[in-house]
């Protein structure tokens, strides 16, 4: 009762998703701080042995529902089970991955339980809150910290009155760390009798397959963009590495597209797309007006260029006088070591 629950997603390969393991790690440390237990919920098919992946993260209870109809994921059946479980167990905190599954199901749960939900948290901390109007002090609330307003503000959200406090967190935000290989917890099967209604299985899956999304630089908040000065297709790969790491997209100047470094759909500027990301990293781009017209409203611009007098430096917030193949690996290295 009043414990921390983590909803564990099951991957195509039948394992617990990384994002869920990261949340178990976070859940364990929050549970220790609050001196409560950590519980996991796994709903899927052929879950035999799945507990071996979960207990080592310091999980005290695993609730499982194992049936062919629970995989692949459909909202209706999983939501019905979770709502029932949480009504019985009255968790203090529930964590979901901010994945296509977690962001689909968590709002339904919060809506049914009439409690607060905070999406895409970047940090979860325990803290107190004093409501000066009500002259009331709330102890040990979950501070749910997330960017809002297009990333222009960082908000700390709390749910003083309602339980559970529900949050979603993106993959890679929290650390994944095994607590003890032979941690001992209890495995409990969720009672599936008289739970479901026909409506819970109303959405029928006809087909699923892997298909890459179209390139979407226009809506990307972070763009790593390259020009002719990048020098080679190999160096351009560094841009892709950095963009992927930062959760951004790769853009290109016309010169880079003409040189065959990048396809046309990545072109930014007058003859390409116009972008206004939070961060624009211009690599080896001289910054002809045709290009800058398509990106000069970016919030923050970093220019990496061997030419200190490149026109793009005039609109950049930071200019790094150096070559792409030296600077980007250093950025990648620092980010990997310090981002969590």
């Amino acid at each position: 009762m009043n414990n921390i629950f983590v909803y564990c997603e099951i991957t195509e390969e039948g394992h617990v998703a990384d994002v869920s393991l990261e949340l178990l790690t976070k859940g364990r440390s929050l549970a220790d701080e609050l001196k409560i237990k950590l519980e996991a919920v796994v709903i899927g098919a052929k879950l035999n042995g799945i507990e071996k992946e979960i207990f080592p993260f310091g999980v005290d209870f695993i609730h499982t529902a194992d049936d062919g109809k629970f995989f692949p994921f459909t909202t209706g059946s999983h939501a019905r089970l979770l709502i029932k479980l949480f009504k019985e167990q009255k968790p203090e905190i529930v964590l979901f991955g901010a994945s296509s599954i977690g962001r689909d199901i968590a709002p339904r749960i919060a809506s049914a339980l009439k409690c607060g939900l905070t999406a895409d948290c970047t940090s979860l901390i325990i803290g107190d809150h004093e409501d000066k109007k009500l002259k009331k002090v709330y102890k040990n609330l979950l501070y749910q910290i997330r960017p809002a307003f297009g990333g222009n503000i960082i908000a700390t959200i709390i749910n003083p009155e309602t339980r559970p406090q529900i949050a979603t967190v993106r993959e890679g935000v929290m650390k994944k760390e095994i607590k003890t290989e032979n941690y001992k917890g209890k495995l409990v099967a969720i009672d599936l009798n008289n739970v479901f209604e026909d409506l819970d299985f109303a959405v029928q899956i006809i087909d699923r397959h892997i298909e890459k999304q179209k390139i979407n630089i226009k809506n990307s908040q972070i763009i790593v963009s390259g020009g002719y000065g990048v020098g080679s297709i190999e160096n351009f790969k560094l841009l892709f590495d950095l963009a992927e790491l930062l959760g951004g997209e790769v853009g290109a100047s016309r010169a880079a597209v003409d040189a065959g470094y990048a396809p046309h759909e990545r072109q930014i500027g007058q003859t390409g797309v116009t972008v206004r990301p939070k961060l624009y990293i211009a690599c080896g781009i001289s910054g002809a007006v045709q290009h800058s017209a398509g990106m000069d409203e970016s919030s923050k611009i970093i220019s990496i260029n061997t030419d200190p007098h490149a026109p793009i430096n005039n609109i950049a917030d930071y200019t790094i006088n150096g070559s792409v193949d030296v600077v980007i690996p250093k950025m990648i290295k620092y980010y990997k070591e310090n981002s969590k």
């Binding site: 009439k114 409690c115 607060g116 939900l117 905070t118 809150h129 501070y143 960017p147 990333g151 222009n152 503000i153 960082i154 908000a155 700390t156 959200i157 709390i158 749910n159 003083p160 009155e161 309602t162 919030s299 923050k300």
Partner: peptide, 12 residues
């Protein structure tokens, strides 16, 4: 149920 406790602006 959700309350904003604090807001920190990302200052450019």
């Amino acid at each position: 149920p959700t309350k904003v406790k604090t807001i920190q602006n990302v200052v450019f």
